[in-house]
Design a protein around this nucleic acid. Structure first.
Length: 116
RNA sequence: CGAGUUGGUCAGGCGAUCGCUGUCGCACGGCGGCAGAGGAAAGUCCGGGCUCCAACGGGUCAGAGCGCCAGGUAACGCCUGGGGGGCGUAAGUCCACGGAAAGUGCAGCAGAAAGGAAACCGCCUGUUCGCAGGUAAGGGUGAAAAGGUGCGGUAAGAGCGCACCGCACGAUUGGUAACAAUCGUGGCGAUGGCAAACCCCGCUCGGAGCAAGACCAAAUAGGGAUCCGAUGCCGUGACCCUCGGCGGAUUCGGGUAGGUCGCUUCAGGCGAACGGUGACGUUCGUCGCAGAUGAAUGAUCGUCCACGACAGAACCCGGCUUAUCGACCGACUCAUUCU
């Protein structure tokens, strides 16, 4: 069952720093950039960063975070990763359907690169 | 029915599946029940609660804010009612609405003259035809020109006289008051405007903020408490006084990463009765209504309709301001038609 407990989230600053310093994989689209790092933990973890500079309204930032987590929850990767998803300014203008389409494409890229 | 003013309420609904946070129950590493953003959660502009402080101690000065009157409130710069003035036919609406006879300052152009200012064209009288005197009705300038209108009066004029209006002063009456009305007096060369110009008067104001602060605690060290004490220095506007610290002695632990608490039950919501024009108050009944911490309330599908705006809690309340697709309810005004 796809669920999303607290253990599947990046919480500490050093978790983020580790991914930023040495990302094993990097995929991007118009709306997002995804950094990934292999982890020894059982289960992937995700952290979403949406800059106020790129997305001005708090409601929009919340919506994007929820959509990214939804994608993560429903589409588990076969290998365990620590993921960091960054939003780009283009994400502000997309509706729900467009964002989900964009994320689906990103996940496909991620799987292909992970296997390579 | 049309045009408009004003007060208030709501903020897509229902169902299914998969998730998130809190909480309760259990045959508990799972399952089930219940609850889960806003009217502005926003701007952080005011007022509080709460917490800490070597200076929340006293005085003087400085600084900031407020400013018709009465009431409401925990408090306010908020709200209600009233007064005055502006706008509107009206319902209504807007106003930083104390003082300009304490002092200082400011006002371009035009104009003869602009601040306790006076004669350019006029008008009248006299005339030696150069001008002298009287005058402030008319013209002209200006945002503003020495109370206004009318009648009388005069050489021409003028509060010179009178009536009404305005103004100033006084009295009376009504009102808790702001203020209003009436009467009298004064002929008005008294007191022009600006105080979101300085200023004067009255009232209010300590500072920081939940990353406040309290507790448990790896690391690493400058520490903490109590007592004694001369001078000097320091103490978040300045100065003075009071007081505290820097020194010595005695004594013991200390508090960053991380975690826990603070953290949601209150100036609380809803209903009724009573008091009040109203803001609101009193009493009774009833309900339990988010507490996250890289930060929870979402996604997808179906369905209905007027196709859904602005927008996301971060310690909590009371206001103000700004953003907002629409829908509904109440009160009132104007105009037209009908009875």
């Amino acid at each position: 069952m796809p669920n999303f407990p607290k253990t599947a989230r990046l919480s500490r600053p050093e978790d983020y720093r580790r991914v930023f310093d040495a990302p094993a994989l990097k995929v991007s689209s118009a709306a997002f950039i995804v950094l990934a790092l292999h982890t020894k933990m059982n289960g992937s973890r995700i952290g979403v960063i949406i800059a106020k500079k790129h997305v001005k309204k708090a409601t929009r930032r919340n919506r994007l975070k929820r959509l990214v987590r939804e994608q993560f929850r429903n589409n588990r990767l076969t290998q365990n990763f620590d993921l960091v998803v960054l939003a780009r300014p283009a994400a502000d203008d997309m509706d729900n359907a467009e964002v989900m389409r964009d994320l689906t494409q990103l996940w496909a890229d991620l799987r292909r690169k992970a296997c390579a």
